[in-house]
Design a protein around this nucleic acid. Structure first.
Lengths: 396, 396
DNA sequence: AGACTTTCTCCTGTGGCAGGACAAAGCCCA
DNA sequence: TGGGCTTTGTCCTGCCACAGGAGAAAGTCT
């Protein structure tokens, strides 16, 4: 058991750890500058961190015209586990303390099988990753689930697409199994944290991160911190009404955004297009696979299929309509589009942009980038690792 | 010149001042408990504040079974000025350091006359209030304007209904005239702060405050702090699309919420109802005044006029539709409805509630109170005083 | 009148903290 | 190769933040 149990003893140490996490190896002098702390004071805190083993001094940096500095860095032995549970698949990854992904596994899965079955699979994947690396255990784990979470307790609440998970003590159960601290959050929030940590949102303070996968959700970041709302359901935009008296939705209402777009709706619409004889391309794929998925639509669109392109454009337009309202309301500095459908690429992005730029207030859109996430499937697991490291790298 | 120039020297002092502002006179012992600071340490900071004159010790509190405590309180000589500029009227008020309104004036006004004319009027009103009280000057002033503000500089940016104000250095100009620190914010944000300070939102951390006056706006409070967005236009929900391809709006788009509701639209619709012979009640009022305002609709509705009630219901429904999306997105713990149209009362509230409770996610609405603001016209000026006091009662 | 409570002040020891002095270790240039 | 300059890191000193205890002051209750 080489697992680290030490925690920062004060705010200075916590900040030091985060600086080292996000900035890599750094000299004492630089740390002092960035923390706005005297060198003497800083040296004391660094020494204490060195004593705990959370941090090590290794090697000398190149000279900058004077004495060479010692590199202070986070212990290379630290390992975080990031788990991203989707509706139909799981991602599990190991990172070092700098949140770089050292190993990553993706497997199909069905959340509806319930927490016990899912965790069995997750733990097997984690064990495989652990075996392939030098780690003998994890120092912390972050986990994302596709539904609202009561964050302080780490418990899913009333998750629509996860029957059997309601009230399941995810945090406690996983912490027991893994023998390390665990934090639980909504998968969309983790994607936002991932893109903020290592993706397109690195310098953004207030931004939205729209995840279009099986369903549609939106991570909200305010002042660099994820905003979760009063009951943990903030950002749940899939059931915002996109069409008055529109299509019936699984949630019981009518006209919800998710009834028109997202992986599930897209596959349904694609199959309908085949039935109506509107797409030979999609028909061939349906023939081959027996059913269609969002990826089929993406492939057909890439091949120039008109029906597929129309589906994407219509979905993007609907999403853009909802997003336009949210942009006017929230006035973000950046909008990131991510999730499984990023394969739909530029067609989707163009449709969303058109709608948002047309409908939102000019002041809110004047300098608003709307971009695709750049981390893909790594966003969620990176965000998960960031979640637990934020927790561990905070004052005890 | 008895004006206070002292400022808190550290975070402890700043917190002390806010505790005294919000909690009234308090003993040293209680302050120590609430600040989680030792009595000895606290005594030092209190003594320093006493030296500055920001705080005084007057009188003894009733005994609680032992030695009687000294009441520590904010200097009763402190005076804040709160200014709330609307589209068609100004509110100016003086408060003490506890943000209690000591004097309050309302006058009709037209923002479109530009900042110079408006400030002349505001300064005259301030002078009148100053003359009626013991104050010889103001220790700070907060001012709200009906449009987006670049908050750090205190300058309106691209305000649609305030031509001539764009880029005008409101903060600097007013600070010069009044000879005291000034802070500027959007009027809706100030209403939210007012309701949080002394109204229905006293215990709320994350809430929305919808102001329906001439236009429609929404104050967003996250973790007890007003969220202003990247360019200061957050909460500008008047131009969210409520109806695809709907009525043309002054902003150039179609179907905006403000094209259907708010004081201007309501008056227009009421006059249309008269032309179509749908309301004798409103016709009589139009006859008498030459034109109709939102208050006429409120009065007609109170008298049971069916057309007026329909107008309110329809406006409330439309507002509720938009709000339903925002509630799903933001998951607030409270929604406050305020502004000029609160006179529309329960009919409006019922229409909004119906729509939100029907359309938003159950998890987001499960325990969500939607209530009318309780401060009325005092909300804005109280929020303005709160704004400047927050600024002054923060570490120098 | 005496016991008990609460409030407030004073004292002392510990530790946070900045800044200067100084040593160590490098660079550059003659 | 040596001297001047720069950067880094350590040590020392003095100031202030802070907690907790002792004790005085001012009450209540029996």
């Amino acid at each position: 058991m080489r697992r680290m149990t030490a925690r920062p003893a004060n705010a200075h140490q916590a900040r030091l750890l985060r600086l080292l996490r996000d900035g890599g190896p750094t000299s004492r002098a630089q740390l002092g500058d960035r923390m706005d702390l005297s060198r003497s004071r800083l040296a004391v805190e660094v020494d204490r961190l060195l004593d705990t083993g959370l941090v090590i001094a290794d090697g000398l940096a190149a000279s900058r015209g004077g004495r060479r500095s010692h590199n202070i860095r986070l212990s290379p032995a630290l390992r975080f586990l990031g788990v991203d549970i989707g509706a139909t698949s799981v991602d599990v990854a190991v990172t070092n303390a700098e949140l770089e992904v050292l190993g990553h596994l993706t497997q199909p899965m069905d959340v509806r099988e319930g927490p016990v079955a899912v965790f069995e699979q997750v733990l097997a994947m984690a064990a495989k990753l652990r075996a392939s690396g030098p780690a003998e255990g994890f120092d912390g784990a972050g986990i994302g689930v596709p539904g609202p979470v009561r964050f302080p307790e780490g418990v899913p609440v009333a998750p629509p697409i996860m029957p059997g998970w309601d009230g399941f003590p995810v945090r406690e159960a996983l912490s027991q199994e893994l023998g390390c601290p665990v934090m639980v959050d909504n998968d969309v929030n983790l994607m936002a944290m991932g893109e903020q940590q290592a993706g397109v949102a690195r310098s953004a303070k207030d931004f939205l991160c729209v995840k279009i996968g099986t369903g549609i959700g939106c991570g909200i970041v305010v002042g660099g911190e994820v905003y979760r709302g009063t009951t943990g359901s903030a950002g749940d935009i899939g059931h915002i009404q996109a069409e008055p008296d529109g299509r019936p939705c699984a949630c019981g209402n009518r006209g919800c955004l998710e009834a028109y777009f997202g992986g599930a709706a897209l596959a349904r619409d694609a199959e309908a297009a085949v039935r109506e004889g509107r797409s030979a391309e999609l028909a061939a794929r349906l023939e081959a696979a027996g059913r269609l998925a969002a990826t089929d639509v993406a492939a057909a669109a890439a091949a120039g299929d008109a029906a597929a392109l129309d589906l994407i454009r219509e979905g993007g337009t609907r999403t853009g309509q909802v997003l336009a309202s949210l942009v006017s309301f929230f006035n973000p500095g950046l909008v990131v589009i991510g999730g499984g459908v990023t394969g739909l690429g530029h067609t989707l992005l163009a449709a969303i942009r058109t709608q948002v730029y047309r409908q939102s207030l000019p002041l809110a859109t004047g300098n608003l980038p709307i971009v695709l996430g750049e981390l893909g499937p790594v966003a969620g697991v990176t965000g998960a690792a960031r979640l637990i490291s934020d927790h561990l790298f905070s004052p005890a």
